[in-house]
Design a protein around this nucleic acid. Sequence first.
DNA 1: CTGGATCCAAAAAGATACTG
DNA 2: CAGTATCTTTTTGGATCCAG
Lengths: 110, 110
Amino acid sequence: MATVPRPGAHVCGIDAAMDVIGGKWKVLILWALGERPHCRFGELRRLVPGITEKVLAAHLRELEADGIVHREAHQEVPPRVEYALTEAGRHLNAALAPLGVWGRDHVLNR
Amino acid sequence: MATVPRPGAHVCGIDAAMDVIGGKWKVLILWALGERPHCRFGELRRLVPGITEKVLAAHLRELEADGIVHREAHQEVPPRVEYALTEAGRHLNAALAPLGVWGRDHVLNR
DNA sequence: CTGGATCCAAAAAGATACTG
DNA sequence: CAGTATCTTTTTGGATCCAG
């Protein structure tokens, strides 16, 4: 195998995971969906203050493509779309917990 | 309190940690330093294939500022500088482990 | 209400050359 | 050896307007 096998390849599980949660707001979206499952788009926008519609939509599409969130569009007017964590998304949230503890202990409360 | 208290503030430990490990190569640097403590600059560059000197130096300075790595310059010719994880850095690596497992299980081997 | 489309600014990273 | 200095390129996110 080459030192850099192919562009975009991951050398270990950690940087593979980092690609999935690398967006500026993604962990906040995951956290929000963990706290409140089956969130609507506008609800998420309120739960993640400061994010724009465009970026929220983009991140949700990426998370969906990565199998982290499930998107369900109900055929109604006005439109209603609900987002929820998949099984993989819940596992990811659990794997993120120790990192949250570390951040609180070593970065926050200074 | 405002919805976004002040620019750059963190709302939870996870995104605080994400700021620390957010660089493209940082987790690989941490992993290398975990495997091989007391690494020299050129050694690290070889252990993280593809990274440029500029980016490696910049990331090391940021990690040092965040208290993750310790830099020790020996006054010799030719120059010798050694990098090592701090206690916080070792704890961070440990907190990253579950994320690595998740990445292997859900992103790699497809 | 849920976004898509467009344009723009800022940040991050890469290439290359050079120095104590 | 261990970086710094520049310059360019790429990526990311923000602002705004518009549509089904």
